[in-house]
């Protein structure tokens, strides 16, 4: 199964997003990771890498990110992670993208590519 990692500058925000996404995609493998190495607002490359490794069961991993350093640290974490299969970042709003990704990840034919695509479709969601 394709695993999902949600990265936010706040660990609590990441956990909350995972909580929302898990309601729609209950069987998906989703990891929440956030905060800088000291627990403040920010991101930690090492923590993201560990989450990617934890989310991977051989089927690949899709990473959802919020701002600036989350994107860059996720890129480096993917390069550094000991993941055999694909890992990719979804260019998507983090919460809506995580919901879409969780739903797609539970389908039998899901691939890293299809989960990234599903997450990216969340860019089209309009609020008004």
């Amino acid at each position: 199964m394709v695993g999902i990692v949600v990265v936010s500058h706040s660990e609590r925000a990441a956990e909350g997003i995972v909580e929302v996404a898990a309601e729609m995609g209950g069987d998906a493998r989703i990891e929440a990771v956030g905060s800088d190495p000291d627990g403040g607002i920010g991101t930690s490359m090492d923590a993201i890498r560990e989450s990617i490794e934890a989310a991977d069961d051989g089927g690949g991993v899709v990473v959802l990110v919020d701002l600036g350093s989350a994107v860059m640290n996720a890129e480096i974490a993917i390069e550094e992670a000991a993941v055999e299969a694909d890992a990719g970042i979804a260019d998507a709003p983090v919460l809506e993208g995580a919901v879409n990704a969780a739903v797609e990840a539970t389908s039998e034919s899901a691939t890293v590519e299809s989960v990234v695509e599903a997450a990216a479709e969340a860019r089209e969601y309009r609020k008004l």
């Binding site: 920010g42 490359m45 600036g68 480096i76």
Partner: peptide, 18 residues
Amino acid sequence: LVSAVGGASGPLYGGSIM
């Protein structure tokens, strides 16, 4: 730098030096 810097400077400085 990548491991110790929390902000975007970590990946920018550290990742690029690596």
